[in-house]
Design a protein around this nucleic acid. Sequence first.
DNA 1: CTTAGCACTCTTGGCAGGAGAGTGCTAAAA
DNA 2: TTTTAGCACTCTCCTGCCAAGAGTGCTAAG
Lengths: 357, 357
Amino acid sequence: MGELTGRQEMILGLVVHEFVRTAVPVGSRTLVEKYGLNVSPATVRNEMARLEELGYLTHPHTSAGRMPTDLGYRYFVERLLQETELPLAERRTIAHQFQQIRQEVEEWMPLAASVLARTTRSAALVTAPRAARARYRHLQLISTQGRLVLLVLVLQGGLVKQQMLTLPEPLPQPVLSEVADRLNQLCAGLTAEEIEAHIPTLPLFEADIAQLAVGMMHRADLSTADEVYHDGLTELLQEPEFTEGGQAQSVLRVLEERSFLEAVLADTLGPTIGSVRVVIGGEGRFDELQACSLILSRYGVAGLATGALGVLGPTRMGYGRAISAVRFVAGLLSELVHDVFVAGSEPLPSATGRSSP
Amino acid sequence: MGELTGRQEMILGLVVHEFVRTAVPVGSRTLVEKYGLNVSPATVRNEMARLEELGYLTHPHTSAGRMPTDLGYRYFVERLLQETELPLAERRTIAHQFQQIRQEVEEWMPLAASVLARTTRSAALVTAPRAARARYRHLQLISTQGRLVLLVLVLQGGLVKQQMLTLPEPLPQPVLSEVADRLNQLCAGLTAEEIEAHIPTLPLFEADIAQLAVGMMHRADLSTADEVYHDGLTELLQEPEFTEGGQAQSVLRVLEERSFLEAVLADTLGPTIGSVRVVIGGEGRFDELQACSLILSRYGVAGLATGALGVLGPTRMGYGRAISAVRFVAGLLSELVHDVFVAGSEPLPSATGRSSP
DNA sequence: CTTAGCACTCTTGGCAGGAGAGTGCTAAAA
DNA sequence: TTTTAGCACTCTCCTGCCAAGAGTGCTAAG
């Protein structure tokens, strides 16, 4: 990415800004008039031509204004966008909402999605936090009538898995609880492999149960994202680039084809917490996202449990605001996860004043 | 809804059939030729004019073919559609898939949604089964480090709720387990109110925990649908009626605005299990669904736990197949729920041969 | 009651022409 | 050397127009 002169940068920035606002290719005259530049449209045209040569702008057709290319957005995001934060008032209300549902584990993800969608006016995606390697925390066996038993396995980080099993003969609840307790003492904090090592030493019935739990943990390890919470799809599809045919579906595919989302996450997000990644226009690898940009970040506690969250919008999106919002919400969620895992007992420091690395 | 002559019914039926297939208004000549009627187009025209007068057909404009009105579809569904079932082979494979994941509680809903979406080529919506009144089944307290404790509450039917709480002082896991056990013995099978009645008799700490559980149960009672699983939205949005502007959003609103879905379910589905309801074109009450039809059914075990599932398609949808699919999948899910709740110990009778009332 | 015939209406696609917007280029001005 | 004015050029967008095609509604005859 070559260097641009100050004026070229300014013009690129203005084109991005104006195009994001209006969704209409912007011409030289409009730019000069709207932003009170003290050069003539002709000069701007020359610079625009140069920017186009370098690949930062395009033309839909000869007599139309300019619009940024994906490369143009990239330059904008990486060099022109000064790091910014959401306004304090907004941070306050958001932090307050999270404070409200601090105890309600199930509300975390939906709230994060809703907040992201609302503040960025785009679609938001949030995956639940998961341990890199599932670790056993607690198991319980709940007898239904008959020989049918519900096995509830709680993994470290609060992820709950359920499975049913049929006993060869009915057992009373106290016996089941006792079995569960013994396993709990033995297995707390272990990974699937570590538990497997113990199995041969266990009495028959307990070994069976442990084997089931191991299976559930393995399955949990395999899938990267169990549930994807989303919000704001309707707002996204109101954007002009999606109101026409085909485009809407490709966006939905991201949601419904889990494998696709997993690929994107794996490709663009390492295990690093805190940094925000920006994927513009699919970056050649994801055709379905040609018209979209993704702002992604990982949240959670490194090495213990992490999830991902992000904003999906048209390439023509407000990157500054979106990046700040993603970073801020990721920070809040990380704090919540931190509580469940590392668990300080002191009251949380106010989240409002925080910002990321 | 007045009576129609046999020939009028036939023509209405053919118009529906043809329009569903092609999405193009159907003219009198095409009808005669494609279906080998031995009357002339003019006769068909006369009948069509009569059907239009009665409100079963419309014209987009003077020189276009006819297409069914919502009333026309309604007549078709209620009087012309003979009760039918999915082909045996298809029922077999579907039942087999459910058999495979019988034990995997978390897979039920996604599978149901996926199967419905695929067999009807429309969007499918499935809500998790919920007890009419939440009933306590099992609670457990899992200590994190420090004073933070994770409370996991399992309700009858397998619904799991989690919440965190902060203790005034740290307690070791065995003490917590003991408290949980005492509450479990006392509260198993009770509703929120019944537990509340016990609270004054409990020691202080246990009373607090019980109060929390009661709160969680109340909250569970309030919301009709916690999670809505969906699949097949992409296929739906490929239909010609949604590829153009505005329409796509209104469909997504159904998904994202939970309150809306709750309203629809409450309005159209009583607590009755097994019957299939058809909502055509929003029926005047739901503007967002003007272009859509919903095929809905409740599943589960009456009085214990029920959920809803359905297919969302364009009004121009294959009603026969959709209704059969919804009924069949609802039946399969009901059996699964039956197992968890009422819990027979005998192996399931093969679902393939079953059909609903 | 059915049908043939015919006039009528409305959509669709193609084509032409003018307005508007914005560019690219050239030559003059700073 | 950079900036600017001027001008020709290109392309979209809208409008009006025309012909083809599809399908109807009506009327009068079978």
